[in-house]
């Protein structure tokens, strides 16, 4: 009887069941088939023999990776760059949001927001072009500044410098994303009860103390959640950014896992090793996301991603 009801229901809604077919096909083909493709990481893949006929080699590819300088270098760079971004870039939007919130003129606040959100909408390739101009040691703004302080012609090309390149990744990331990063914090600040500020004022708190004792605590949960998710993305050190900005001169300090996968496959034709690198990254990511989501839920049951 129940099964009969179910069938009647499905027949009545059959259009709904037809509608999901393209979507299911899409996810099957473009997400689940590549997941199956990762099995290549466990094969001795050669283009000539194809996927099916290549021999199984177990974990040999992974073993080889961990003994390859290129891989360990990429892994190290990925973690270092990620940690730099976490330490230096992550706090800036919080600071900016708190300060933006203190602006009395709503119109002016909007103007500043419109200005600082802008680079988020611009691709890394374009920003690479802009940086190329600004940092040019012979014509750029950096040249003007150095000349002003009497260091004419003594500027390094930061884009080609091993010492500065990682710093440049952090600074350019701040320039591009810090403004837009304030969006969620601003939204959270808007939900703080104004009475809390009134109460703080009555207690004699000045602006600074209000920021410290009301605004910042109001942001606490948002900060913790975003921080945790950022940690979950530890192995994503910014493929589009690095790929747009780096050059052979700075590979040593900026080759990350994603760019290494690309090079293994398309410069060296080592598809199995490249896939193994990808699988390693995807698995670590999965574990990190599961752990960080668990922690996020512990802190605030509402805020896990799932």
């Amino acid at each position: 009887m129940r099964a009969q009801n179910m069938w009647r229901q499905i027949r009545k809604d059959k259009i709904l069941y037809v509608m999901v077919i393209p979507g299911i096909l899409y996810f099957f083909v473009f997400d689940y088939i590549p997941m199956y493709g990762v099995l290549m990481a466990f094969k001795d893949y050669s283009i000539f023999e194809g996927f099916m006929d290549s021999d199984w080699v177990g974990l040999a590819n992974f073993q080889q990776l961990f003994n390859t300088y290129g891989f360990t270098r990429a892994l190290r760079n990925t973690i270092i760059i990620s940690i730099y971004q976490l330490v230096f870039a992550f706090p800036i939007p919080i600071l900016l949001a708190i300060l933006l919130n203190e602006l009395r003129s709503v119109l002016y606040q909007r103007f500043v927001q419109t200005a600082i959100y802008l680079p988020h909408f611009v691709s890394w390739v374009i920003i690479g072009g802009i940086m190329f101009a600004i940092l040019s040691p012979s014509t750029g703004v950096i040249y003007e500044i150095a000349s002003f302080f009497g260091y004419e012609g003594k500027v390094t090309n930061f884009l080609n410098s091993k010492e500065y390149f990682r710093g440049l990744l952090v600074v350019s990331n701040i320039w591009k994303e810090a403004g837009f990063g304030t969006v969620l914090y601003m939204a959270t600040i808007a939900t703080i009860n104004p009475q809390q500020y009134e109460a703080a004022k009555v207690d004699g708190a000045g602006k600074l103390r209000q920021m410290w004792h009301v605004t910042l605590p109001g942001l606490r949960t948002t900060i913790v959640i975003l921080l945790i998710f950022r940690v979950g993305q530890l192995l994503n050190a910014g493929l589009e950014q690095v790929f747009a900005l780096y050059s052979p001169l700075v590979y040593e300090v900026s080759e990350i896992l994603d760019t290494y996968v690309y090079k293994l496959a398309f410069n060296e034709a080592k598809f199995a090793l490249a896939t193994a690198t990808g699988v390693f990254k995807a698995l670590v990511c999965l574990v990190l996301v599961l752990i960080t989501n668990y922690i996020a839920k512990k802190i605030d049951s509402e805020s896990g991603l799932f």
Partner: peptide, 9 residues
């Protein structure tokens, strides 16, 4: 949560 990655795609 999990993707095949660049090469399988």
């Amino acid at each position: 949560l999990f993707q095949g990655g660049m090469i399988p795609s």
